[in-house]
Amino acid sequence: MHIGSHLSASGGFLHMGQEALRMGADTFQFFTRNPRGGRAKEMNPQDAQALRRLMAEHTFAPIVAHAPYTLNACAAKPEVQAFALQTLQDDLARMEYLPGNFYNFHPGSHVGQGAQAGIEKIAAVLNKVLTPEQHTTVLLETMAGKGTEVGRSFEELRAVLDRVQLSEKMGVCLDTCHVFDAGYDIVHDLDGVLEAFDRIIGLERLRAVHLNDSKNTCGSHKDRHAAIGEGFIGMAALTRVLTHPALQDLPFLLETPQDTAGHAREIAALRAAVGEEN
């Protein structure tokens, strides 16, 4: 089982890897820049190489870089969509210093244009930024369906993937809180949810899991994460996600409302629940 949490990138790549090890983790997620947007820090190739050595030494699963929340590839305003295009291009160029890992982003909100228009715009942006040479897999995240979010259903994600020319460079990140809030009952029918995912998208596309509890009931479309075991999903259901045969070897990333020490306790509790030692 590969499990980690979201870490601050302020100390650099190697520091994040070392912090993950101190937490009992063997993967992690980080923002490529301020989550509300802005310029990214200049890359340090030596720091990236040091992280790659540490990951190989400690058998890390792939790590996940997360795009800023302000990235909206299906925005109605041209300047917002231009920011999404530029940010994706810049971030994917930076990820080449860490080849073989994942880049995750929220598909975006169509802000009244309609889901179909949003799907077309997202795919158009991806078709501009993806290259045959890149070594990073880009992940569409499953969304809770609040407001005009695209990605509230497996069908919407599949519609985006169907329009991407270099589809082999694409995958999906399943967020347990988001799919639960979107109406997929992973508490009482995890097998059924994964069977639907496989039928509609294909489990081979599932490359990472955001492991979060939810402060709201199934189908609420709220997207409010809870600490592990303190929400409506619960420890037992999240443990079933961790141990499901179809999900083995995936990186599981915590995005719960905890500090580093809290995430370390959650990682320890999850490992204990599945019979693993730190």
Rank of each mutant, 00 (worst) to 15 (best):
L211G: 09
L211K: 08
L211D: 09
L211P: 06
N212V: 12
N212M: 06
N212D: 08
N212F: 03
N212W: 01
D213R: 15
D213W: 14
S214E: 03
S214G: 04
K215L: 07
K215M: 13
K215P: 00
N216R: 15
N216L: 12
N216Q: 14
N216F: 10
N216H: 15
T217I: 12
T217Q: 00
T217Y: 09
C218E: 08
G219D: 02
G219K: 00
G219V: 04
G219A: 08
S220N: 00
S220T: 02
H221A: 08
H221M: 02
H221D: 01
H221T: 08
H221F: 01
H221S: 03
K222T: 10
K222Q: 12
K222P: 00
D223G: 07
D223M: 01
R224E: 14
R224S: 12
R224Q: 12
H225E: 04
H225Y: 06
H225Q: 05
A226H: 13
A227M: 11
A227I: 14
A227F: 13
A227G: 08
A227D: 05
I228N: 13
I228A: 01
I228P: 09
I228K: 07
I228S: 08
G229M: 12
G229S: 09
E230I: 15
G231V: 11
G231H: 06
F232Y: 15
F232K: 15
I233Q: 07
I233K: 10
I233W: 02
I233A: 05
I233P: 05
G234D: 08
G234N: 14
G234Q: 03
M235P: 06
M235W: 03
M235H: 03
M235N: 03
M235G: 06
M235F: 05
M235L: 10
M235I: 14
A236V: 13
A236K: 10
A236H: 07
A236G: 06
A237V: 03
A237R: 05
L238K: 10
L238W: 06
L238N: 02
T239P: 01
T239F: 02
T239D: 04
T239Y: 00
T239I: 05
T239V: 13
T239H: 01
R240G: 02
R240Y: 01
R240Q: 13
R240F: 00
V241Y: 12
V241T: 13
V241Q: 11
V241K: 07
V241H: 11
V241I: 15
V241P: 03
L242R: 13
L242T: 12
L242M: 11
L242C: 12
T243G: 12
T243W: 04
T243P: 03
T243L: 11
T243Y: 11
T243H: 10
H244I: 15
H244N: 05
H244G: 04
H244Y: 09
